[in-house]
């Protein structure tokens, strides 16, 4: 689609003109589907070489609820994940692939600090694992075993050797699969391990999910300095795990909390904070 759109533009304006847009290696424009935790989601067209920051904070209007930017996954399920340090990176084929991601299908999913990176890569892997045709060993067997390891890590059952095994599997699936689906399937895992290895290790050695996402691996605490006693958290909680009142303030009862994150997501003040289980 994108190619055809470009072709007609080039026919109208000539390729010299086309080349003036974008970078030397990646002339022209790129179309992205910007989604996730951004204020303005949708299909966007930008010149090659525009920085990620311009895209996310400019066109996208910044992170929803003004939370902290954590990462952006470009290229769909077979793409890679880039952390904040690359926000000023220009978007073009060459740079992205150097950093371990791709333009790919043009997907651009932005996540904030409440998204668990292990869970995030599991989400993408699940997709490719289900799409596997099952013909070749690495993709049929390998993606499932990778998924099982991620599943283990996100349920607090990970072991340190899992990281090596994940990398081993990712490399094997990536370099020996029969078709593109398999060879790119490990990309999300590889890139998140590259930039967020600590978060994996935290999951394994401390049984702690700092994004407050993996059930049973975090505790939520209300920061009373930020809290404005709006009571939305209490009203949203299905487990009666938040005690208190608008007058006396609110308190999360750890023993009743099921980790459903409704409070975390509904709090307009971003007052609910994540801590390791005591």
């Amino acid at each position: 689609m994108k190619t055809w759109a470009a072709v007609s533009w080039i026919l109208q304006h000539g390729s010299a003109k086309f080349r003036t847009i974008g970078t030397e290696d990646s002339p022209g424009t790129a179309i992205f589907s910007l989604t996730g935790n951004v204020k303005n989601a949708g299909l966007i067209e930008v010149a090659m070489g525009t920085t990620l920051r311009e895209v996310i904070y400019g066109i996208g209007g910044g992170i929803s609820k003004d939370r902290a930017f954590k990462a952006v996954q470009t290229g769909g399920p077979s793409g890679g994940c880039l952390p904040a340090q690359f926000l000023d990176t220009p978007v073009d084929y060459k740079t992205l692939s150097e950093l371990g991601s791709i333009m790919g299908s043009g997907g651009m999913v932005v996540i904030d600090d409440t998204t668990c990176i292990v869970d995030f890569s599991k989400f993408f892997l699940q997709f490719t694992q289900q799409e596997s045709c099952g013909k070749c060993v690495p993709c049929r067997e390998g993606t499932l075993r990778m998924l099982e390891i991620l599943e283990r890590i996100t349920t607090g059952k990970g072991k340190m050797s899992d990281i090596d095994d994940l990398l081993l599997l990712a490399e094997t699936v990536g370099s020996t699969s029969l078709c593109g689906l398999g060879t790119t399937a490990p990309n999300p895992v590889v890139s998140t391990l590259r930039y967020f290895r600590d978060e994996y290790i935290q999951h394994i050695s401390n049984r702690y999910c700092s994004a407050g996402s993996c059930v049973g691996m975090f505790e939520l605490v209300i920061d009373h300095n930020k809290c404005n006693n709006c009571s939305r958290c209490q009203r949203g909680c299905s487990f009666d795990a938040i005690s208190g009142s608008r007058d006396e303030g609110f308190l999360i009862l750890t023993e009743s909390c099921e980790g459903c994150r409704v409070c975390l997501e509904t709090c307009p003040q971003n007052a609910i904070e994540v801590f390791p289980v005591k």
Partner: peptide
């Protein structure tokens, strides 16, 4: 050889 080993480990896992 490393890849072969992993592939075989994958086959025997199932």
């Amino acid at each position: 050889e490393t890849k072969r080993q992993t592939l075989i480990e994958l086959i025997i896992a199932s």
